[in-house]
Design a protein around this nucleic acid. Sequence first.
DNA 1: GTAAAAAGGCAACATAGTTGCAAAATATTC
DNA 2: GAATATTTTGCAACTATGTTGCCTTTTTAC
Lengths: 149, 149
Amino acid sequence: MSNKTIEDIENRIASLLKRSDLSVTESRRKILHLFLEQPGALAHGDIERKAGEKFDRVTVYRTLQAFVDKGIIHTIPTADNSIRYALCKDDCSAGHHHDHHVHFVCSICNNTYCLDDVVTPEIKLPKGYHAEQVEVVVEGVCKNCKGRE
Amino acid sequence: MSNKTIEDIENRIASLLKRSDLSVTESRRKILHLFLEQPGALAHGDIERKAGEKFDRVTVYRTLQAFVDKGIIHTIPTADNSIRYALCKDDCSAGHHHDHHVHFVCSICNNTYCLDDVVTPEIKLPKGYHAEQVEVVVEGVCKNCKGRE
DNA sequence: GTAAAAAGGCAACATAGTTGCAAAATATTC
DNA sequence: GAATATTTTGCAACTATGTTGCCTTTTTAC
Ligand SMILES: [Mn+2]
Ligand SMILES: [Mn+2]
Ligand SMILES: [Zn+2]
Ligand SMILES: [Zn+2]
């Protein structure tokens, strides 16, 4: 039974990679697995560690870059200058990201979350400026950390 | 006449440093000068270059850190993970920044601007999340680059 | 001017990220 | 399913970024 589930996930991973024109390799499967099995965002370092030092640093960089290029994950800028990565929900594809949601960084547990339901607001700019993309990062205390500060 | 102006600026710089409990040193004067003489934000690299390789890298790092700590400059996170620094307008002091404005990064000239008059919007978060700070970075085409794309 | 305090420069180190190239793994074709 | 063509990986080497300890120099306070 449990085996069935694991197989399911692996199939899902493989088909996602194929759909994105990426060959199915061990590192890509492993890293995609990391993203699927947890809710928050991952930093490059997290991935290197969680992958169990099984892959070269360069491979992790290249894998993440490939995933971003193909619209599988998106980057999240943070105030402390450490890029996080998170799964794109659905409508992103190669060359075009459509992630217009707000990101949240918890100052206690340091986890980063995509708030998929909170859309980035319109920003009224001074004359002459033309907006192409708006990034909103909120820092504060997350659901889980509330109360146990 | 022109000498008078230069002297004025130097006096302004010195008093700003003293008010912030920072001793007046050559590197601090020089770096503060760089911020005062141009409108946009500066990256660490810009400063190293513009200071004319006169100061050690470490000094630049420590100077910028001191300025941030004292509320003289603030950091601006960007999507490409390179921190920019810009002057705080007035009401920031040691330990407490009050920069609630939107930042703008031009995708053509790559300059970063503080839009001091554009305040960061309220973000309605899902239940359980508590916001402490909101960072908004808009990417697009700036005033100067508009037209000559 | 002198002494105390602060800041700067240097060396050494740590982490992050990139590139070229040969070896290995994956996909394609028969 | 084996042979071949294509991709991807790992390694080495390199650049960039950022930090720390320690001694010297500069600044400040008296
Ligand atoms: Mn997201
Ligand atoms: Mn600003
Ligand atoms: Zn938390
Ligand atoms: Zn511009």
